[in-house]
Design a protein around this nucleic acid. Structure first.
Lengths: 212, 212, 212, 212
DNA sequence: CATGAATGAGGTTTCATTCAT
DNA sequence: CATGAATGAAACCTCATTCAT
């Protein structure tokens, strides 16, 4: 049993090692130009070994992207659970902060994850991984919608389906992140994600405040 | 000159012919699986000929994506120019409609264009094409920001940089479109772009209305 | 038309060129150890070019093997058609000779063809090629059975289904050829195919003669 | 010594265990698609362990094939030894039966063994295994030729080298078995080996009978 | 003896691109 | 201008085999 566990942990460590190496290569060569051989070299492993831990290239890529989703989930659950007597306003603020933290946590992978969602990429993933992503996504959106629902019941938000709020804020977030990336390509501006996210929530909040 | 011109026009016709063929193939095989040979066959041309009209595959792809940007530009210029004594409210409504029309005009290419903006893809484009995209983008955002500026000066919007409004609405739009695609992959829902766009503008407008 | 034809012929020439190169490599390195790169190098072409003429490695291999079947077909048709007033005895003799000639024509490929017939190999072939093989096989066996039928009707052979005769003689032939190869591996004997074939027919013939 | 022996026997048991597992995998996945890992998993051993009992993959494959040769040997020796005062006719009948039993005993491996004999495969075998096969083969053919020799001395067969008889019948047998397999691929017919073997011997026998 | 993680050479195949005609 | 055969680099992935534990 102890042995089983240690092996499992050892295995997980290797996976991490590979994923870290992969990330390093990605950030230098870009996704499409990165080969499995590159990653193997960076991880100081042989190409074949990668396939002991990841079914294929797409799975490795996707596993990387999933980390940010996982991080988001943890953050959101924290917002809901830990702070019991928080006001809705505070929760919305925490939501905003959580999203921005996700961005700071690993912006490169976040961008990649948004691209990953395109149907073209998704087709090659294993059903298991797909289910994994779906679940994480579903869970995160569910929590967001909970927050908005509280707001609605507290009479602070207009009566719209809470899931719509969640969808819109998530769309906006992904749009902002991608747009920031593309702007950086063209204008080399500094990050404007924080400010944009602030503004987006501000707009939400104005609507809220004035309805009192 | 007449001859020059005719040649130029002939050349443009060929480009269009190729782009149309490319689109047909894309919609069937998906982007990553489409080869130059596929396109050549669909266009009833030889592979070599494609390279007389497009520097490389990425250029062909990008040229396709640009069409939606061009369409957006035309629509936005129409909003500003044609309708002289329109109220700001009407202009904002027209802006929303223009964006949704762009989506309907060619959603597949719109999605592709958003993906195209990733730095990974952009690296391979010719400076000329890049400049082209930058200009179209810049112009569109400029017009949007004009509309918002009018609103601000009319005292309808809060005093934020108009370009920020433009950025946010454009981000939100791209986010919605991409999110819709990814949702469709997982849930096979019907299009929710129109509704989401409505809601996003609604949120804007509520903020607007209540500040009077 | 002339152009179409010339292209077709040019194409066929290339196919031959590749097949000849392939054979040369096979005879040196053996089948399983031969790579597409080896063949390309021998043919002084690039690896990619091979795939313009053969769908994959198995198709190339099989196409090679088919040549002996084609040769057999031609020889057998010659036996039936050209010689009108021949006695059955003579035809049987011609049959035997045809089979031996096939062996001399290209023993290496004949051996390979017999191995090819194993279900394991067959699974990867294109339906078209499979049909091709089936047809050639069917035709050859049909002609053999015709010869035996003539013999039966002439009262020379016992009354057994002619196809059974054809099957048996073909089985025996393949067995002899394969056995010869395996013996050569072990004992380095000289070819015994001719003698064995003679003997096999001799046995047949004794049966025939004595039933008069 | 007792210990030595027991170890030896234990070792042999393991070999058998692996070979049985290998066979099970072969019959499902086909030869070319079976990997050492598959076999290890089926045998509930680790891949490395296989190499303690078999020098390499080819040796494992070949060892499997040898079993039918061993079975044939036993059967043939039984024909010669056990039944002392049997007539030649009876012995020939027993020979035929032995061959058919070999086929029924393990047709899959019999087919494989015939393929194994190709020079291509043989190159990788250890000299020891090769010698083993040679010996078994030699012995079997020797016994067959003994039977035919008896026939010749009894004046029943024509005076041909007995070894030629043995070669021919063995060739025919292998040809029939392989041909049956290839036919099954195409036509899905039922087994015709028994009937074909009957016919082949029938032809032999007719020749015999009529020479009296 | 047994393990099984790691190896890494090597195979097949694809496909954007070129260039002689 | 157009062709399309040829290119050839490079990618992904497999799997027989080894060796430290």
């Amino acid at each position: 049993m102890g042995i089983q566990e240690r092996k499992q942990r050892e295995r997980e460590r290797r996976r991490q090692q590979i994923m870290i190496a992969a990330k390093r290569v990605f950030s230098v060569k870009g996704f499409s130009k990165t080969t499995m051989d590159d990653i193997a070299k960076e991880a100081e492993l042989s190409p074949g070994t990668l396939y002991l831990y990841f079914k294929n290239k797409d799975e490795l890529f996707s596993s990387l992207s999933i980390r940010v989703l996982q991080y988001l989930n943890i953050r959101l659950e924290h917002v809901i659970n830990s702070s019991k007597p928080n006001s809705v306003e505070e929760k919305v603020g925490a939501l905003k902060e959580a999203m921005y933290d996700v961005y700071k946590f690993d912006s490169m992978m976040l961008v990649n994850m948004f691209h990953l969602q395109s149907s073209d990429t998704v087709r090659n993933l294993s059903p298991q991984l797909l289910e994994n992503i779906r679940e994480l996504s579903h869970n995160s959106l569910g929590i967001m919608s909970q927050i908005f629902e509280e707001g609605i019941q507290a009479g602070i938000f207009f009566d719209m389906p809470p899931m719509t709020y969640a969808d819109i804020i998530w769309s906006t977030f992904s749009g902002i992140v991608l747009w920031e990336e593309s702007k950086r390509v063209f204008t080399h501006d500094k990050s404007y994600v924080e400010q944009a996210l602030d503004t987006a929530f501000e707009i939400f909040r104005r609507g809220i405040k004035t309805t009192k």
